[in-house]
Design a protein around this nucleic acid. Structure first.
Length: 199
DNA sequence: AACGGGATGGTT
DNA sequence: ACCATCCCGTTG
């Protein structure tokens, strides 16, 4: 079994973590079934100078875990769905990386059932889609993902992505700080979300 | 208590 | 382009 990414990996600036997560495997054992996918799209949300970050303004009940340890899951509800993030940096610094798309690997049949679709492409492309596929909901909020229990990330030497295979763009769906280049995708990967011009 | 806007996604 | 759906932060 490949090594699980540990806290020191996440205890860095979110744009660095977002970049380095590309090519690694997000794994879930939720529901008693292993489901996983290769991370192909991420977004960083910064503690400073980023008005789109949930923790940018005030420390509220919703964003509390963002101010805790690196490597903790931050799951928030939006439009009756969920998005999965990993907290970065040290305590008291509110920032995170949003996982936006995976290339399906393990548990494809379970993911198809959970998603209610048959198309591989529609299984884990999009932040709320991959949460449904991996059975990530609000009960995952605050869980430690540096141990292989519910949800974790696996990486080895083969999971690193060359710089010329990485594309950096503006983030999707944000209505402020739109110009910040904090979205990271594996170039030309068919499981990346969003409009074609951002792939 | 009420209100308005989402780090969405599926349909028209 | 539209909107289902519901949670959360803000305001009164």
């Amino acid at each position: 079994m490949p090594p699980t990414l540990r806290r020191s990996f996440y205890a860095q600036a979110p744009d660095v973590v977002a970049r380095n997560l590309l090519g690694t495997m997000l794994v879930s054992r939720r529901g008693g079934t292993r489901t996983s996918g290769r991370i192909v799209e991420t977004e960083a949300y910064l503690a400073e100078g980023d008005s789109a970050c949930h923790a940018a303004k005030h420390r509220t009940a919703r964003t509390e875990v963002m101010f805790g340890s690196a490597g903790i899951a931050y799951v928030y509800p939006i439009h009756a769905k969920f998005c999965f993030n990993i907290v970065c940096e040290t305590n008291e610094i509110g920032c995170a990386v949003l996982i936006r798309a995976l290339e399906p690997v393990d548990g494809v049949e379970a993911m198809k059932t959970r998603r209610g679709v048959d198309s591989l492409r529609r299984l884990t492309t999009g932040p709320a889609c991959l949460c449904q596929a991996l059975e990530i909901d609000r009960s995952v909020n605050g869980l430690d993902i540096t141990t292989p229990q519910d949800v974790w990330v696996e990486a080895n030497s083969k999971s690193s992505v060359e710089s010329n295979r990485v594309r950096v763009t503006e983030r999707i769906g944000v209505t402020s700080a739109e110009d910040l280049l904090l979205r990271f995708v594996i170039r030309d990967n068919p499981f990346v979300s969003g409009p074609a011009r951002l792939r």
